[in-house]
Design a protein around this nucleic acid. Structure first.
Lengths: 341, 341
DNA sequence: GTTTAGCACTCAACAACATAGAGTGCTAAC
DNA sequence: GTTAGCACTCTATGTTGTTGAGTGCTAAAC
């Protein structure tokens, strides 16, 4: 459906005003605030038309207008312009990342934090479960008399470790050569496809330590299966407290529960992601729990898989800012991870 | 001040009733609910006395009584009995810890979570900054062509690692022997007191790799200084939403901010801890921000230092349950860490 | 002297009602 | 097609009245 320019301008004014004030918008205030060169009565007529077409709604007969879901959709698709990060914001981000960063998780955490701060909504970053199939290197390090640590480095550069009891009689040098045997046998092989030949090789070379070998293999198995779940990092959940739509304790409670109880949000987010910014408004969300919320998100590639990054907030959201920020940070986080890992 | 038995009984009834209902307690309801064999009028007289002595307060002249801070203090010190964990609760805890636990942090997290669940308040666990002075073992592990990971095991059993660029020419075997040199020189020495002799030893034995050695030393230094801050794990902050005293959005906001914004709570907690359960009621707390909250906490020994564990909730708190739970879990967490590390 | 029934009094909470004001739709004039 | 004017609608806010839980005090009972 294509609208006349004036009609578009009025629709845009109403939506922007409502997003700003959270109050139903009257004809007079539109004229005043946006200096339209027409009278309030004309605006009233237009608004009545827009309501008929489904873009606006009236909470009750004698109140101002509020955007409908369709109205927001039209606004997002045809009226607004994404507002990407400003130079100052980019500068700030650079400063944040000039500090010491310890790995992966910390990058994600900081980006999420930054995003929540910029948008004043709640940010989320979903890190895909990393498939840990192959290992690049294994090392058994002695600690104290009867303990050792198995350290595994995977093909994706992840480092994992776990403690292990060992017989007192084993020397550090033996541990080193055992590690070497493992490395010779397994390096760059898919752990789950290790075959008889590989295992025989290890056994032949370490005949006398059968007991310990089993323990090590067991530990490796544990490490590789353990971490196999998506991680979600949520920032700025408390920003919801500032939104007028969540002044009601019960609503607040249900939304904070979704955001904070582990793993709920993860299962609720849209599943098919691309590298385009995707916006789900209100009941466009499939999940019942967030039919009064909007989500702005995008995908990013990391370690060969696709993660999700975005914000969640009230339907009355500053979509231009949210979409621009998500778009910018989606690209940035991809670069940051690539650069350092 | 010592009170007559009947007076004590009435005070206890009023406090328990108020803690349960959050409503001012009237004379009639005390008599009814606790089957006292005296009339409401007598109770009224007693309550007037208790008010005069400062144990009770009246929100307004014709309302029931509410415990004062002094009243709660007397209750906590002289009237209540700590309610330690029940057998079922201990059983549940056992089941939680029969699952796989990955290190230290996870123990703490699970205990905190459990404590929040049992008490319905917000739990906190403060892990002291671990002084990382000595290392027990160091290993440089090759990853790919031009990278290696430095893994350090400290005297307290902590494992830390960090990636490092290395010259392509260095072989895995060389890395191993370099590691050995470091180990010979430094093991069980306080890192910050490593002296000229130690360094000379390393240098003499690794003359040709000067550049890399410096990098490794640098990395070690980074690792040892980096983690030097207390960690706080907070669970069940959303439990506050259920308390009638936090139905007001502004109060809720300020308390959730304290609990969630990183690091605020840590600086606010009482500083001198013992292995006794310590209870701070309302304005007994030094920090302005939590003068309307109560804290029940205790210290626990871990890795040679003292951590804090406890709950924070409204002044109208079920102190008996909170104190018992904190006491039990304080001992349990100490044992759990000792047992596994 | 202590306890208790009785009663007048107090005050918050709630409901019923009145009022103000922002905004509308419609009509008639421009 | 646009706009001024006006009657109408409906929420939000303030006012008033009523109810009921609870008190303190007095005087009688134990």
């Amino acid at each position: 459906m294509t609208l006349a320019d004036r009609t578009k301008a009025i629709l845009e004014s109403v939506i922007k005003d409502y997003i700003e004030t959270a109050e139903p918008v009257g004809s007079r205030s539109v004229v005043k605030k946006y200096n339209l060169k027409i009278s309030a009565a004309t605006v009233r007529n237009e608004m009545a038309d827009l309501e008929e077409m489904g873009y606006l709604e009236q909470p009750h007969t004698s109140s101002g207008r509020v955007p409908s879901q369709i109205g927001y959709r039209y606004f997002v698709d045809s009226l607004m312009e994404k507002e990407n990060l400003t130079d100052e914001e980019l500068e700030l981000l650079k400063r944040i990342f000039s500090e010491n960063i310890n790995g992966w998780g910390e990058i994600v955490e900081k980006v999420g934090h930054f995003m929540a701060q910029l948008t004043n909504y709640t940010s989320f970053v979903v890190l895909p479960a990393v498939r840990i199939d192959e290992f690049k290197h294994l090392q058994i390090i002695p600690v104290g008399e009867d303990e050792a640590i198995v350290v595994i480095v995977t093909d994706l550069g992840l480092i994992m470790h776990r403690k292990l009891k060992i017989p007192v009689s084993v020397t550090p040098e033996e541990l080193y050569s055992i590690s070497q045997v493992f490395n010779k046998a397994f390096t760059n092989k898919n752990f789950r496809k290790i075959n008889r030949t590989d295992l025989d090789y290890v056994r032949d070379n370490l005949r006398q330590k059968r007991n310990m070998i089993d323990k090590v293999i067991n530990t490796i198995d544990h490490l590789l299966t353990d971490t196999n779940e998506d991680r979600v990092i949520i920032s700025g959940a408390l920003n919801m407290l500032n939104e007028p739509e969540f002044q009601d304790i019960d609503k607040l409670k249900s939304i904070l529960t979704i955001l904070k109880e582990d793993g709920i949000l993860k299962d609720i987010l849209p599943t098919n992601v691309t590298d385009e910014v995707d916006i789900k408004i209100g009941s466009e969300n499939v999940a019942e729990e967030i039919k009064e919320m909007s989500i702005v998100m995008t995908g990013f590639k990391t370690l060969g898989q696709v993660g999700k990054i975005g914000v969640i907030g009230p339907v009355r959201m500053e979509y231009w800012k949210a979409a621009g920020t998500v778009e910018s940070l989606g690209e940035i986080i991809e670069d940051l991870i690539k650069e350092r890992f």
